[in-house]
Simulated assay, not measured.
Amino acid sequence: MANYTAADIKALRESTGAGMLDVKKALDEADGDQAKATDILRVKGQKGVSKREGRTTENGLVAASAGDGVGTLVELLCETDFVAKSAKFGDLADAVLKVAVSSGAADAESLLVATGEDGKTVKELLDDANATIGEKIEIKRVARVEAPVVAAYLHKTSPDLPAQIGVLVGASGSEQTARDVAMHVAAFSPTVLHRDDVDEETVANERRVAEATAREEGKPEQALQRIIEGRVNGYFKENVLHDQPFAKEPKKTVAKVADEAGVQIVNFVRFKVGV
């Protein structure tokens, strides 16, 4: 008879994040000893790390931190939503974010080699988690924003999952306005801050498509230029943060709202899990 209880199984699952079957096998092999079972899970898990390299990570969460004029955003991915919403994965994300903040890492490569207070690199933390949880876990993106005021906003697309969208907005002026803009960015997903940030090739292509579409629709020649400009402006309103109708006051653009509040938006970053 196995020398462990249902409570032991539950405790080991919570501490390692491993699956039920793996936990039972480890406890059987360790004769119920929690510490030995944990080591068994880690050893077996490490052997499988290379096998998981080719797996797809489409779930996960976004973690954010902002304060003292600096904001950090980290996207941590895993294979299943079951793991994404687990406490073990959430704790791992918190640990990774803490190292990202303390190290000042601004990209995934820099963060992986950064070291936490326990002396472990983030890559070692991920390898340990890969081993015990049994899924491929990776950092997809990291962003760092510096400005007089940095607002962070996290949004859940499902109540059962952790935050799937994270935004940082760097600005000068009102912190509340910056946060309102961050919430707007989460909802409307602009791609650039200013019109000038849209590359010339993209604008030229939008003009070509607009003209071809107008001609296909049989629009009169004398109206073509006006129609083309209108459709290109429509592209800007959809993709440029300053040109978008503000979420809380759709009759005003984001630029207008910021100007009235005495706020200058410096930059922004938006992550959505798996996108």
Rank of each mutant, 00 (worst) to 15 (best):
A6Q: 07
D8C: 01
R13Y: 11
G17T: 11
G19R: 11
M20E: 03
D22P: 09
V23S: 09
D31F: 02
A35H: 03
K36L: 14
L41E: 01
K44A: 00
G45S: 05
E53A: 09
E53L: 07
G54I: 10
G54P: 05
R55W: 14
T56H: 14
E58N: 10
E58C: 07
N59L: 10
G60T: 05
G60H: 02
G69W: 07
G71V: 06
G71F: 13
E75T: 05
L76R: 00
C78V: 05
T80E: 01
D81R: 12
A84H: 01
A87P: 07
K88T: 13
K88G: 08
K88M: 12
V96E: 06
K98T: 15
K98Y: 12
G104S: 09
G104W: 11
A105F: 13
A105E: 09
A106M: 07
D107H: 15
L112S: 11
G116W: 04
E117A: 14
E117W: 01
G119S: 08
D127F: 00
N130V: 02
T132F: 10
T132R: 14
G134I: 04
G134V: 04
A143L: 05
V145S: 10
Y153F: 09
L161V: 01
P162R: 10
V169S: 08
G170V: 12
A171M: 05
S174K: 00
Q176E: 13
A182K: 10
A182L: 04
M183G: 03
V185N: 08
A187K: 13
P190F: 02
P190N: 07
T191C: 02
L193W: 11
R195V: 05
E200T: 06
E200P: 02
E201F: 04
N205S: 11
E206M: 15
R208Y: 01
E211A: 10
R215V: 15
E217Y: 01
E217M: 14
E221H: 04
Y235S: 03
F236P: 01
E238K: 12
N239F: 11
V240I: 08
H242A: 13
D243K: 09
D243R: 05
K248C: 11
K251R: 05
K252W: 09
A255W: 05
V257S: 04
V257I: 14
D259H: 08
Q264M: 06
V266I: 07
V269A: 07
R270F: 12
G274K: 13
